Computed example of a mutant assay.
Amino acid sequence: MVHVIAQPDFRDMTCMSGEFRAFIGDLIKKRTWIGASLSCPEKKSPLRGVTVGIPIEYWVDELADRVRDAWREAAVRLASLGADIVQVSLPSTRHALPAYYIIAPAEASTNLARYDGIRYGHRTEPEHQGESVGEEFMTTRKEGFGEEVQRRILLGTHSLTTG
């Protein structure tokens, strides 16, 4: 997965630099990231020194039994590989979804603002020579972005412009 993510996307001008991409490539070749040692049979405790925290806030009554069992099995497996399993508290977890619904649209609004059809992105040619720049922007964005993206841009712009 890291190898796929590390590939450049020539359609994205915000893509990571070649230098950083090479650094990630070296990690892939050396297999030095955490978890690579899981496939190394010569080590009895490949996760020795790794601490895995299980948040108590995630153990809610509504959690499906199969999900709870999967967590337990994963904890047992990680412990058998040498990891220390500890209980942790993430009291701000309850704010994660509301924060996401503010931050994600604001990010969409600011990141997609450059795709105005003038500098970057899809551009609709005006049907009439007298069409204003504002109308051209509006038509371009309507054609270039789907309804959900437009909704997120609008919500993000609203959240950025209000207190």
Results as ranks from 00 to 15, higher is better:
residue 11 R to H: 12
residue 13 M to F: 13
residue 13 M to S: 14
residue 15 C to L: 07
residue 15 C to V: 14
residue 17 S to C: 05
residue 17 S to E: 07
residue 17 S to M: 06
residue 18 G to K: 08
residue 18 G to Q: 11
residue 21 R to L: 00
residue 25 G to M: 03
residue 26 D to F: 06
residue 28 I to K: 05
residue 28 I to E: 01
residue 29 K to Y: 01
residue 32 T to S: 15
residue 33 W to N: 09
residue 33 W to C: 05
residue 34 I to Q: 08
residue 35 G to M: 06
residue 36 A to I: 00
residue 37 S to D: 13
residue 37 S to A: 15
residue 37 S to H: 09
residue 38 L to A: 08
residue 40 C to S: 12
residue 40 C to A: 13
residue 41 P to V: 03
residue 42 E to G: 10
residue 42 E to T: 11
residue 44 K to P: 09
residue 44 K to Y: 06
residue 45 S to K: 15
residue 47 L to S: 00
residue 47 L to D: 01
residue 48 R to V: 05
residue 49 G to A: 01
residue 49 G to S: 03
residue 49 G to V: 04
residue 52 V to Y: 05
residue 52 V to L: 03
residue 54 I to C: 03
residue 55 P to K: 06
residue 56 I to G: 05
residue 56 I to W: 09
residue 56 I to D: 10
residue 56 I to N: 14
residue 57 E to M: 07
residue 58 Y to R: 08
residue 61 D to T: 10
residue 61 D to L: 11
residue 61 D to Q: 12
residue 62 E to I: 11
residue 63 L to D: 01
residue 63 L to Y: 03
residue 64 A to I: 04
residue 64 A to H: 11
residue 64 A to Y: 07
residue 65 D to A: 11
residue 66 R to M: 09
residue 67 V to N: 07
residue 67 V to H: 09
residue 69 D to M: 11
residue 69 D to E: 15
residue 71 W to K: 08
residue 71 W to G: 00
residue 71 W to M: 09
residue 72 R to D: 01
residue 73 E to N: 12
residue 74 A to H: 09
residue 75 A to L: 04
residue 75 A to C: 14
residue 77 R to C: 07
residue 77 R to D: 08
residue 78 L to P: 02
residue 79 A to Q: 12
residue 79 A to G: 09
residue 80 S to H: 07
residue 81 L to G: 04
residue 82 G to N: 04
residue 82 G to D: 02
residue 82 G to A: 04
residue 83 A to Y: 03
residue 83 A to E: 03
residue 84 D to R: 13
residue 89 S to C: 15
residue 89 S to P: 00
residue 89 S to N: 13
residue 90 L to P: 04
residue 90 L to V: 15
residue 90 L to G: 06
residue 92 S to T: 14
residue 93 T to W: 14
residue 93 T to D: 15
residue 95 H to C: 11
residue 95 H to N: 02
residue 96 A to C: 15
residue 96 A to R: 06
residue 96 A to T: 10
residue 97 L to V: 14
residue 99 A to W: 08
residue 100 Y to K: 06
residue 100 Y to T: 06
residue 106 A to I: 05
residue 106 A to Q: 09
residue 108 A to P: 01
residue 109 S to K: 08
residue 111 N to F: 04
residue 113 A to E: 03
residue 113 A to S: 12
residue 114 R to F: 05
residue 114 R to T: 00
residue 117 G to A: 04
residue 118 I to L: 14
residue 120 Y to T: 04
residue 122 H to C: 01
residue 122 H to I: 08
residue 123 R to K: 14
residue 124 T to H: 08
residue 125 E to S: 11
residue 127 E to V: 13
residue 127 E to H: 12
residue 127 E to L: 13
residue 127 E to Q: 13
residue 127 E to W: 07
residue 129 Q to Y: 09
residue 130 G to A: 11
residue 131 E to W: 03
residue 131 E to T: 13
residue 134 G to C: 03
residue 134 G to P: 01
residue 134 G to S: 10
residue 138 M to Q: 12
residue 139 T to E: 11
residue 140 T to P: 01
residue 142 K to C: 11
residue 142 K to N: 10
residue 142 K to I: 12
residue 143 E to G: 03
residue 144 G to N: 05
residue 146 G to Y: 01
residue 147 E to C: 09
